[in-house]
Design a protein around this nucleic acid. Structure first.
Lengths: 241, 241
DNA sequence: AAGTGGTCTAGACCACGAG
DNA sequence: TCGTGGTCTAGACCACTTG
């Protein structure tokens, strides 16, 4: 008899991986907290320490966990450092990373437009929150951001809490949504009149447009962010391997 | 007695890794050829198969090797697919990857200018080869590239052989230089007059500038490439994790 | 069937951090 | 000194490729 086992074959450590991932998604281990030790997990799942290790190794490579030798394995959280720098690729001309500041221009609620429906995987008529803000580097406006979120995921966004500099931390702490990945499409465009005011530049100046969709741990689109960047003194850094 | 062993500590598999890397750099295993099996390497280096495996695992992650289950481990080469796509992040508006064609405009030799000295780590007065070419997507010019190479590394570049579409393959096959990494700085700028002619666009059109330095296996800068891209119908794709 | 990479185990020991 | 992650081994077996 031909079994389907050969088709369904998944290495043990991959299976362990999804079991562990599910726990993270379910919030059984909070971001920042330590996991049980490898030995404990091995005992619990009934596999060897090496197998647990291989699962955790892969998840650490995916930035789901952080390991600290001699201490333990931790559920990674978007620390200020990480959310600013790991997803923030704007660098000053001398190559140094810079800490951006931000100022909110507006927060409005509306019905999703075509771009939002597409990128956030919404249905016609669903509601969104739109946040417009500028980001400053060395006190000068450099980026205008247009951010869209689905209301169903972020119902009271901007109503009760202040909007912090690093949004991904807020999504995680207040809405239990963890951004793990982002896809960016870059192009050069002419600065629009409405954005020109905020960047204090003439209309038509070439700016870098970044069309970013942020994806959560469970593969759902979380945020659509359209940024316009003045790259006269800063650039976007990309390292390819 | 306090030994320095604790300071010099390097895991066995790291040591094995550098021994193996040296062989690749020395060309003892040609690109595309198969390595000895893990068991053979283990025997040769006097370690266990698992240790060899860990070394090869890391090097595979670094794109130095390619593994094929049931067949062997191979020294990776820049196949057309890889050099086009792995270092080529321009995608059409519908998200599909496109195969660029290229047309050489000029090849000249000169003394290195300031930018070249800096990026290629040259001394004042050293010679460079400059290649200017356009790249076409669907028969239309989309990219102008200004490429600079150190003459000392690529002495007869452009003299005897035709210049192929995929330069990194040429560097590898003719000059024994393997590009393993590239750093790109992106910004939006106004199209210059000299480039405008080639892209068939008005002077001043916003274009994406990519300032790329390619780095070899042994960490030396190999190539400086300044590209200007018309992003009206194409964009630059960046995936962050 | 033979050979290769891929997985898994059980157990040992090392380096690191904290008490 | 203890507990944690990190390394290493020897040996077994599985899945994939080729003859």
């Amino acid at each position: 008899m031909v079994t389907s086992s050969t088709l369904n074959y998944q290495p043990l450590y991959k299976q362990i991986k999804s079991l562990i991932l599910q726990r993270v998604i379910d919030g059984i281990w909070a971001p920042g907290s330590a996991l049980p030790s490898e030995q404990q997990l091995a005992k619990e799942f009934g596999v060897s320490q090496g197998t647990i290790r291989k699962a955790l190794d892969e998840m650490t490579a995916e930035n789901i966990f952080v390991r600290k030798q001699g201490k333990g394995t931790y559920v990674s959280q978007h620390s200020a450092n990480r959310s600013l720098f790991h997803f923030f690729y704007i660098v000053s001309n001398d190559g140094k990373r810079v800490m951006p500041d931000s100022r909110v221009i507006s927060v409005i609620r509306s019905t999703a437009n075509k771009g939002e429906i597409e990128r956030l995987d919404l249905k016609q008529g669903e509601k969104v929150v739109r946040l417009k803000r500028i980001r400053l580097l060395n006190k000068k406006p450099v980026i205008v951001e247009h951010i869209s979120l689905a209301v169903k995921m972020f119902s009271d966004f901007g109503k009760k809490e202040d909007i912090p500099n690093t949004l991904y931390e807020l999504y995680e702490s207040q809405y239990d949504v963890r951004v793990m990945k982002a896809v960016e499409k870059l192009r050069a465009v002419k600065l629009k009149k409405e954005d020109a005011i905020h960047l204090e530049l003439p209309e038509g100046t070439p700016v870098l447009e970044i069309d970013r969709t942020a994806i959560s741990l469970d593969q759902r689109p979380v945020e659509w962010r359209l940024s316009y960047i003045d790259t006269q003194n800063y650039f976007y850094l990309s390292e390819l391997t």
